[in-house]
Design a protein around this nucleic acid. Structure first.
Lengths: 122, 122, 122, 122
DNA sequence: GTGGTCTAGACCACT
DNA sequence: GTGGTCTAGACCACG
């Protein structure tokens, strides 16, 4: 995976999301060490301070733990990670249903639409 | 429907979305006249300038037409409205599938999740 | 009250605490508007960024709400403020008792000591 | 007692505090010999250099004396220990009262709070 | 070498 | 004029 940044939202938020995604997908495994702030910043092409802010958020979310001087590591608690993963999936589903409901579509249309979309990329 | 505004995004964007929604759902029917800017602003509790900007965006999207003398009206072209409605629904479905794919879930999970979420909201 | 800053802890933490104190004591009343970031920074003699970080924390604690462009205001929910106040007092009492317990003193000594200390400043 | 370390403060400071506490409570009696640096470090799970620094601070406080050949021993002067103990207790009481005073609570509240907290912990 | 903090200065969108 | 964000660069304690 590479870093995709757009200008319509705060960069640090996007960084937080993408690093989170790497944790949820196991690219950064539980208990494993995260790359140094400066290295991640260099990879993403942003200022180290910006990346630091992103990682601080990650820490607050409980997905990473900071050792103050020895680098950050992904939380060892796999339950936290799977919970976050499922929560994220459920939130996406809920947002999808609500978006459709606001347009006047029902749950039946929801299923039909994902099938149609699935065909195109299938 | 009422006005829901959050502080994490530009106000005028949220206003544009919500007025758009009212048009797509027929609350503001095709060819019908939109309330005056000042009235809408009063309803939403925002500065008239902000609402003005939101409606200008609406015109640019082709959903509303403005005549300098007689206020703004919803476009008479029903096809434009239905097209926008369907496009929005498809975009929501696509975003949903992509979000799940990024987490490692497949199309099958997509259907399962919306059923589960649909249960909760009855 | 004036600004007292020491070098042994992060400045932004101390700023958060002191602004919090001003809210809890009513110096910044519920629903009232907080001074601008730049003004507070000038008062405290720190960089605006540092003060901003302190206020962001305040927002996250639920004691202040940010309007994105119209300045920050103290939360109108007086219950939140009183709850924070009581919680803080209880935390102080708990920390006091635990500190004494670690030294081998019991609750009885706790009362005696505060009386003695109270005399000196009384 | 076991070793409790948090990442929000220097490790060596926390170690100093906890070893101090063991001296004040008599777990390491006056004139007795302290465990070797390497053993203490192993117990606490920290780098020996860090523990070394903590014990150096202890010497500077006058609670321990180090002879280059025979390891460190707790000071034989029991008066120093009791004085430190009482000073610490008084400091805790003073800090407690000041914290409450900053919130607008008086000495009467101080007594009430410690009774309430004492109840909870039986 | 690590993360954390702070300063300085600039730009931007929003109202 | 407001808050928010970002960059740049520096310093520090820690291990």
């Amino acid at each position: 995976m590479t870093w995709k940044l757009t200008g319509d939202r705060p960069i640090w938020q996007q960084l937080t999301e993408q690093v989170t995604l790497r944790i949820l997908t196991g690219e950064y495994p539980p208990g494993g060490r995260l790359p140094a702030v400066r290295e991640l910043a260099a990879q993403a092409g942003v200022n180290p301070n910006t990346m630091q802010r992103a990682l601080a958020q990650l820490e607050q979310d409980g997905l990473a733990v900071g050792s103050r001087t020895a680098g950050r590591t992904v939380t060892e608690d796999a339950a936290v990670i799977t919970a976050a993963k499922e929560e994220r999936a459920r939130a996406a589903a809920k947002a999808y249903l609500e978006a459709l409901a606001a347009l006047g579509y029902g749950p039946g249309d929801a299923g039909r639409l994902i099938e149609e979309e699935g065909q195109q990329n299938g």
